[in-house]
Design a protein around this nucleic acid. Structure first.
Length: 466
RNA sequence: CGGGGAGUGGCGCAGCCUGGUAGCGCACCUGCUUUGGGAGCAGGCGGUCGCGAGUUCGAAUCUCGCCUCCCCGACCA
């Protein structure tokens, strides 16, 4: 008799499946205030891995970490007209504190361009101070009407980089490598259209990933702020001729939304599948029954794995049935599982199970550690390959807005930008479809001049999105 | 803000119409038997039924008021 599925099948109701995975894999739950989330140890462990990998890349790119305040004077936001206009609907504002009504309300940061602007204005005096490359890890608050855990929460954790340059300069491009190499999510990099641009930027670039249901998720962004914030906050320097100049600034961010993207990109009907490089538990040694020395053998394998740097965990909770524990680790998406029981030991072997394919193989106990290390590499590559082929199969080049709407029901449509334009964007919007980004025909990022991407071969990547 | 629902052990729900000992599933605790794919049986812990007033001998249930939350319609990591 077939048992009821543990999770809602993805094909039946994808959003419900997503909720089920968050609960069953113990990633997060809702907080007491609508839109807030409690990130549980297993979910936070994944975020910590993301932070470690991102932080290393940010530092490689030359940026240093700082911490700026959570509270921002309301007047700061008003200094950049587009910025305040864009963010005001989602601001949380403190008007009472210390038992008194504040003379000037204080805003809980929705992002920190304004405080960075004020700080940079003081720190930058000379062209010798440039470029100034800063980053901070922080929480931010944007009051959400339609929250979804990890994907769109009122408070979220992120990394925000802020840089100042003497000339218009490239933003840091470490996201692509991180998404591809660590998260195994093949992202499309392009520029946002005017209407999707960050409030106050002259150009916004985005990394768009395709989820398991063909919808898009913006997984990171980077903004060229031009001289807008430099003018508003007097971020000036003296150049080598002694002339006062405005800086050019950028900002770029990635957030806990990536955890949601990870779930929706790699999860299957049996639960989460975590790519080994971002897995906080890479392998679990699952003791079947503690008989005939199986317990000692399992503990030894776990220790051997950790000795070679595999993030391994021993599950010797034999008071819980084997099947239950196997299912739970599958829900959590641990990439590789080693099953150790008396039956295996009698034959001098253990059972290795790959989470991505479900394939089971018997390996000699002496070669188990090497087999796990190899399997981790295979799972990493397998997940990337699977996500890439899905993206490629579901990305279709079209020649009309009607076709684009059709294709966007199941994936991404590529349509010549000249065929779409502002009117086309309106037509798509009525179907809940948006232009995710603009690219050149070869998929490269176009140049942006005076706020508009240029090139004869511009294409719009359109899709439904989260 | 406009339309539709719901508030009952930790979670998911029934009971309300027709007032009378507060119930079920999951989870949790104890014991025994189990353990190679979601264990079984037995016994247990846990709830001033969203808040306030009213009707009544008696209110989860009927009446009135209030509060909160959820679902569907414009922008954002």
């Amino acid at each position: 008799m077939a048992k009821a599925p543990i999770l809602t099948p993805r094909a039946e109701d994808f959003p419900r499946w997503y909720q089920d995975v968050l609960a069953k894999a113990e990633l997060a739950e809702n907080g007491p205030v609508r839109g807030t989330m409690v990130i549980k140890p297993y979910g936070y462990g994944i975020w910590e891995r993301m932070q470690a990998e991102m932080d290393a890349r940010i530092k490689d790119a030359g940026a240093e970490n700082v911490y700026l305040p959570l509270f921002i004077p309301e007047s700061y936001l008003r200094r950049e007209a587009e910025h305040v206009e864009g963010f005001s609907p989602e601001l949380a504002v403190v008007t009472v504190a210390g038992g008194k009504t504040l003379e000037e309300p204080v805003v809980v940061r929705p992002t920190s361009e304004t405080v960075f602007g004020e700080v940079m204005a003081r720190w930058v005096q000379s062209y010798r101070d440039l470029p100034l490359l800063l980053n901070q890890w922080a929480n931010v608050v944007r009051w959400e009407l339609r929250p979804r855990v990890f994907l769109r929460t009122t408070e979220f954790l992120w990394q925000e980089g802020h840089t100042a340059h003497a000339t218009r300069d490239d933003a840091v491009a470490c996201y692509l490598d991180f998404m591809h190499y660590v998260l195994a999510v093949p992202v499309q990099v392009g520029v946002k259209t005017r209407r999707e641009r960050f409030a106050g930027a002259i150009n916004t670039m985005t990394c768009e990933g395709m989820m398991g249901d063909g919808k898009a998720l913006q997984m990171a962004t980077s903004h060229e702020l031009g001289q807008n914030f430099a003018v508003a906050f007097d971020i000036d320097y003296l150049d080598d001729t002694g002339t006062r100049q405005h800086c050019w600034t950028t900002s770029w961010g990635s957030s806990t939304r990536m955890v949601g993207g990870l779930v929706m990109c790699h999860g299957d009907d049996a639960g989460l599948r975590v790519p080994p490089r971002v897995a906080h538990v890479q392998a679990v040694v699952l003791l079947v029954r503690d008989e005939d020395g199986a317990g000692a053998a399992a503990a030894a394998l776990d220790a051997d794995l950790r000795a070679v740097g595999v993030r391994s965990r021993l599950d010797a909770h034999t008071s819980t049935s084997f099947g239950r524990r196997a299912t739970d680790w599958e829900l959590k998406g641990v990439p590789v599982r080693l099953e150790v029981g008396p039956r295996d030991l009698a034959e001098g072997r253990v059972t290795l199970v790959r989470r991505d394919t479900g394939a089971k193989t018997d390996v000699p106990i002496g070669g188990a550690v090497d087999a796990v290390v190899r399997a981790l590499e295979d799972v990493q590559a397998g997940l990337l390959a699977e996500a890439t082929s899905r993206r490629d199969e579901r990305t279709v080049r079209v020649g009309s807005v009607e076709e684009a709407i059709e294709v966007a029901q199941t994936g991404f449509a590529r349509i010549p930008w000249s065929m779409l334009g502002d009117d086309g964007e309106d037509r798509l919007a009525t179907q809940a479809i948006t232009v995710r980004c603009l690219q050149r025909a070869d998929g490269s990022v176009p140049e942006v001049v005076d706020g508009s991407p240029v090139g004869e071969d511009l294409e719009a990547l359109v899709a439904r999105s989260y």
